[in-house]
Design a protein around this nucleic acid. Structure first.
Lengths: 227, 227
DNA sequence: AAGTGGTCTAGACCACCGT
DNA sequence: CGGTGGTCTAGACCACTTT
């Protein structure tokens, strides 16, 4: 039922600021127990779509230009949800033998081949993010078959029957390297927001890990108060 | 009961990697329903102390120097949860007239007086964070009465009957200013992680807003996959 | 087969808010 | 006062892991 509520919000049946029907009436509408309603609503609030005001009701949140830290979706999913024009271009793509770190993160044996890439991500004409990824061997054919300017790897993987989920993300601040600076159009050594990211298939197999470097001030990262 | 579990972990009864007693046996130990046990355990997992492995059990997480993005607690609360020795020292504290931005964020009228401070935060002997805050007039007496090296403003406010909650946090990367560099012991212009923070009283009145600047690599910020 | 967490039903009482 | 979300009890069934 969480999916249905989400759809109704995105369809415009409920718009930001609106109050949802009470938990009690949702219980009747969907013919489920109240605790089921609650778990669906709290799940949506974790994803930033809803918030609760005790004794009053559940409200649809306003949708800012904000990447919520509690969501963890792919860049293109996020941009698409927001209706923003986005693009991407592979700057570099090559195979190589796994390093010790890659073997550990992707659960591979030494000697196996991985695909590494660097991709520049744009919002309109503006470079906003640099994405350096390493892909597990069993998905490299899919990634290699992509156009240089393919916008969504997640969509390509989904077409191949691989649904991915995001694991833990770690956030740091780093100074732009020479390459970062050149590709993102910022001064060398200027501060960038770095997100270390892991991606898994639904069965738990590691698919990818990567480092995204964001130009500050363009995409705002936010974490919302839960309760 | 969440508090009691937390205490037992910090007391060392359970150490990182340990499996907790099963939900069923905790139900018996604490004489509560299983859903109560579960809400306590999931609350602790949101705070980063536990994680669940389906069909196996609940495990104590390795106690890294990790600040979870889905928690939003005060620095001292976080440090206390981890049993880390922490400290703080006010570098600067003074009253002044509100700026336009402060008036908006703290919902004040122009001409009112606010308290601004800069505080350096330490883990052991190491400066790890610089905290610049602006406090609403109705709490300034409490903050002004604090020792220069008071470790927790949250605790002081709680003693005065003011329970605070954290609002949205926004994360960016910034270059260290001269003052940042001097106080944190890092090179000027080196990258810092900046967290913009709002704090409210339980009744919704704004209490404080601030900018925290973290030395990268000391405290790692993490967001965990929810499901 | 037994035990685990994940999810669910079907109730209950509470503090708080609005009328 | 009735309605709201927050929290709780006391069960139940499931998929999955371990023995």
């Amino acid at each position: 039922m969480a999916d249905d509520i989400r759809r109704r919000i995105l369809d415009g049946e409920f718009t930001p600021g609106d109050r949802l029907p009470s938990e009690h009436s949702l219980t009747a509408d969907y013919q489920v127990a109240r605790s089921t309603v609650r778990s669906a609503l709290t799940a949506l609030s974790r994803r930033g779509l809803l918030e609760s005001r005790p004794s009053i009701g559940w409200f649809v949140r306003s949708a800012d230009q904000v990447q919520g830290f509690d969501r963890m979706r792919s860049f293109s999913q996020w941009a698409a949800d927001r209706g923003t024009e986005f693009g991407g271009r592979f700057v570099h793509r090559s195979r190589g033998e796994v390093t010790v770190r890659e073997a550990r993160l992707l659960r591979l044996r030494y000697g196996e081949q991985v695909l590494r890439n660097t991709r520049i991500r744009m919002l309109g004409e503006r470079p906003v993010m640099l994405e350096r990824s390493t892909w597990a061997p069993w998905v490299t054919p899919i990634i290699e078959s992509l156009d240089e300017d393919a916008s969504s790897t997640t969509a390509a993987l989904a077409e191949a029957g691989i649904d991915v989920v995001h694991g833990n993300h770690r956030i740091e601040a780093v100074a732009a390297s020479s390459e970062d600076a050149r590709l993102l159009g910022v001064p060398r050594s200027s501060p960038l927001l770095m997100v270390r990211r892991e991606t898994f298939a639904k069965d738990g197999r590691p698919v990818e890990f990567g480092e995204d470097r964001y130009v500050p001030g363009v995409i705002v990262f936010e974490m919302r108060a839960s309760s």
